[in-house]
Nucleic acid binder design. Structure first.
Lengths: 222, 222
DNA sequence: CGCTAGTATGACCACCTGGTCATACTATGG
DNA sequence: CCATAGTATGACCAGGTGGTCATACTAGCG
């Protein structure tokens, strides 16, 4: 896992770093704005200042170029996730750190996150499922074990199936990051314009609500 | 508000109902599969069994056709929302009825809901904001007053700003409907394949978690 | 029947797409 | 200074797009 679906040709690696970066930058920007299908090779080569023929000497086709860009995105995600504080033992503390990592990722690499969102909602991207599986932050695979452990340690309630717990967390947190990255889903929260401390005040409120809703209940006879 | 951005030409209204329905059906199916930009006029006219020239006698252009289709969607939504049980007084009971209406809408008009999702995630649709504003179910405009009343009546907690409450509800419920309509976001819940009673068991669990998280707390000195 | 007004048609238009390839350029080694 | 290997180029291709329009058809009336 984690290996590329397609590699650039050797000619690309021979290029001076500066030129490579210009191409990667142009492609990334175009894909982040247009998604896969609508992205135009012509636009990319113009922005990169190279000819179309050259691009096709570096990459077999549009697909290969896109995979290469998406791969560098997944590498960045992995790097970011690795930096998440592992000391934290409390479940909602861990969740908070993951969310924080997401926020920092968007701050650092907004275009890459846009590409992720495009892939998430565009239907006909080659190997879309595989691409998403490589990367989804709050998916079952990531939250699954985390939640399972929390449930065993009675940090979260036992009377709700694991899938439902994951669903609620995933829905809320993923939507939070989406709203932070674009503006139109934020229900008036105006996340993008908030200062860091205000932002985390909202984060903490959301997590607090989730914690209240999901924590193990004290039994009360009625 | 609520009026169309563009109307079909009079020639369209003169058509026999059968032919009109065939055109609307073909356009709806194409837009629901491809979204706006990728939808092909050629595909639509072929499916409708008419010539391209004819279509352009009924509608000024692709945009007008799309608006017409989207308008009939919003009309259906309004009809469905109006049928929501207004007797229910308890806040989470109301929320449940709205969610139920959403589920029934998807069951009845799956293609129309797909169009909504496409508009939600496609960027460059003409007047996209206006279209969405016409229709968004769980948006600030709809949940706003509902939540405000609930907060006043102390059905939900006072210590969290209204926007955050709306955000959490919107995130969870909207995502629930999305997962019900497509499968790939459901975190293993497999909603589409569930029987009605199982589905509503999940609904009730989610609402119960939200209720626990959002209800007014009893004050405890510590 | 013949005339006319409304409608149906698909060849056609300009433009764009991803992708190709003969040609031209350039740098290196002999 | 020449030969060669690697690379850069953009005209070109087939196939698609939304949209147009001269032409053909057809229904109803006198």
């Amino acid at each position: 896992m984690g290996d590329s679906l397609s590699l650039p040709r050797h000619t690309f690696n021979n290029l001076p770093a500066e030129k490579r970066d210009k191409i990667v930058g142009a492609a990334m920007r175009e894909f982040s704005r247009q998604g896969y299908q609508k992205a135009s090779i012509n636009t990319i080569v113009k922005a990169a200042g190279i000819s179309k023929g050259s691009l096709y000497q570096y990459f077999d086709n549009k697909e290969a170029l896109f995979f290469f860009i998406f791969d560098s995105f997944t590498e960045l995600v992995k790097k970011t996730v690795k930096q998440v504080n592992k000391q934290e033992k409390e479940f909602f503390g861990q969740v908070r750190y993951v969310l924080q990592a997401g926020i920092e990722f968007i701050d650092q690499y907004p275009e890459y996150f846009q590409i992720y969102l495009k892939v998430l909602f565009e239907q006909d991207i080659p190997h879309r499922e595989k691409l998403l599986a490589q990367v989804r932050l709050f998916s079952r695979e990531y939250f699954g074990p985390l939640c399972a452990r929390a449930q065993k340690q009675q940090a979260i309630r036992q009377d709700i199936p694991l899938e439902v717990v994951i669903f609620i967390l995933d829905a809320t947190l993923d939507r939070f990051l989406q709203s932070y990255a674009r503006s139109y889903l934020d229900c008036g929260l105006d996340l993008t314009r908030k200062k860091r401390e205000e932002l985390f005040a909202v984060v903490d409120m959301i997590l607090q609500v989730l914690q209240e809703g999901l924590k193990e209940r004290v039994k009360i006879d009625n």
